[in-house]
Design a protein around this nucleic acid. Sequence first.
DNA 1: TTACTTACCTTACTAAGTAAATTAAGTGGT
DNA 2: ACCACTTAATTTACTTAGTAAGGTAAGTAA
Lengths: 382, 382
Amino acid sequence: MTRTAAGEILTRLRDAGPMSRAELSRITGISSAGVTKITAQMRLEGVIRERSAAEAAPIGRPPVTVEICPESRYVVAIHLGAGQVHVALSDVSLGLSLTESLEYDLSEPADALVSRAAEVARSMIVRSGVPSERILGVGIGVPGSVDATGRVNTHSILTGWQDVHFADAFEAELGLPAVIEHNATALALAECCYGIGSEAESLLYLLLGKGIGAGFAQTGPDGRRNAVEIGHVVVEPGGRPCRCGGRGCLERFFSEEPLRALVGDQDLSRSDLLAAAMQRPEWGKVYEAFLQALGTTVTLLGPEMIVLGGDLGVAPEAFVSELRRDLPGRVMPQQRDGLRIERARFTDPAGAYGAACIALESFFYATGPVAPRWPLRRAGRA
Amino acid sequence: MTRTAAGEILTRLRDAGPMSRAELSRITGISSAGVTKITAQMRLEGVIRERSAAEAAPIGRPPVTVEICPESRYVVAIHLGAGQVHVALSDVSLGLSLTESLEYDLSEPADALVSRAAEVARSMIVRSGVPSERILGVGIGVPGSVDATGRVNTHSILTGWQDVHFADAFEAELGLPAVIEHNATALALAECCYGIGSEAESLLYLLLGKGIGAGFAQTGPDGRRNAVEIGHVVVEPGGRPCRCGGRGCLERFFSEEPLRALVGDQDLSRSDLLAAAMQRPEWGKVYEAFLQALGTTVTLLGPEMIVLGGDLGVAPEAFVSELRRDLPGRVMPQQRDGLRIERARFTDPAGAYGAACIALESFFYATGPVAPRWPLRRAGRA
DNA sequence: TTACTTACCTTACTAAGTAAATTAAGTGGT
DNA sequence: ACCACTTAATTTACTTAGTAAGGTAAGTAA
């Protein structure tokens, strides 16, 4: 979706690392004059800097390498998880400088939650000492579906939210532009751009927690991204009823509650749950259901990589190696060859990384539906 | 993916019908000055015309309605189906003025087929009497996967083609720019833009023929489209081997060959096959497999409408009504509510409509990866 | 020193739009 | 008949984001 030459240049510098203006011109197709002009502007804005040339070519004028200044701009990341909110401040290389979390009750009204999260964000901004004009915007990750404009949370099963205008709400609270995205989708993009999937063209991010969800992301201009309701793929037609209204959904087999029931231990930490479940005789059926749903998802969406996130990111090595062994047999040969299965790189406040990534795409790399905000002089004019 | 204001205006005139410049400005957000300038250029080019105003508002200066001239430009459509090629000439409203078909053997080399198809296209262009500068380009529908650039047929199971550069080949043959797309995907877009799905935001096109395939299309800027390998969704793990390399794929249950085996009649026409199959006692299992794969596909992709194409487009009414009754129970409630199931509007040389649509998107409405070609004066300068 | 190569910058230009003011073409009140 | 009012369309002057062409910078090699 990269639209402007400036966004294209920044994205290349992020993905391929520091390089000379000449090389930028070659790989982007932008004229060298254009690169000069745009990089000059960016240097004025403090967004990129020159670096004392690396290995010069043996001939001709040695190139000057330019690189992104990670701390030149920041975004606020707000991850609304199941009962927990993470707020963080991220630089443009997805480095989180401050993070904070807060608990909430799933029945808490959305607007009350927005106020509390915004208060945390405000105090964090103050504490960080980052001048406000360097903070470009807010990215919000939500545990449910998002409309096409990236402003409304249309539906969240877990909390019961319906058509909540989170972007509007946070913009009003913080005075910064905001975008929202589905949690797993945001994480898919984060892994795709900055994490384990940076070499892959497309990726499916699997998120196991209270439920099981997924997101799909693709790099490049016109790279699409979308939520994937893998938790509600039917793996046992006519099976047990699911909160989604269907029957026999994957989530009724492979998510916290059914796994806990399988293990029969309510005190086990969630990260140990999978290891314990794998010891049970009934595990085979659960694993088969998971494999079937995942195989179908890969067949239909064709990702080059599967990234295991949430509790799957800390799954026992046996689980990962079994999956690497068994999944290829469930997908088409063309997909099978290149298919990689990896653990997620971003953990801990994983959702905050996703939310930050979404904000960066929109407000810094200019690949989202919103105009970039880093040219400060233009923003100052408004 | 609409990028230029000109493309945006044309797309609106297509989707919402003729309207005044003022209204175009309002709904697109383009300044009224811009609309004036752009429409003036388009009128010069002969692409749009004014119409003696419709019902004027009771107050203020009466608006002048503008509309697209369907016969102002043409594209060549080439549909490469299973053993049959359709070549057609289409105006910008997807009206096919000439169509022709030719048979080929599935083992015929791709380049020989290109030559023969191109020869048909050349003679058709001559016969049509359309001046060559009004023919914008070629759209090619292929029975397999296509790379991201819209130029290479990476893989076709039916014919065994691998990495065939159809766009390059037809450009060389015809001297016109070319784009390719997966057949079912092209048809999805055609139904979405001009056919039964014009009110829907997104749609899944199901194509039953020798195999079963599908395509997904979404309207609007950033509207994505992609092939959907529904035929290779596994509906019976460990089942009968499929030519794709997997086992128990839907295509082993629900496509020409297995249906014919079910009915036990080799002479039945393909359009009567489904009706005959529905009478057999084993139909229930086949239908269940279809329902399961389709339900999962809808869950994962979330289309607003399902369009039945190919032999499904002429399926018995009983089939369609059963599907309308049974499918909603297999998808999530949010998807269930708005989900519509309809027969395709484009039949006969259906694939040609798809191919034409793809060409129009790229070369006229400027929503594809290629620059629009309708401004003749610019093209003349090159 | 001179020739050559590659990197980068400057100038002049163009494409594609916008904002603000102006003109056009109707209605209805007096 | 005339004028206020409204909406539509156009014109003018400007802005933004680039490109093309050519010049300058900074090194190596003979």
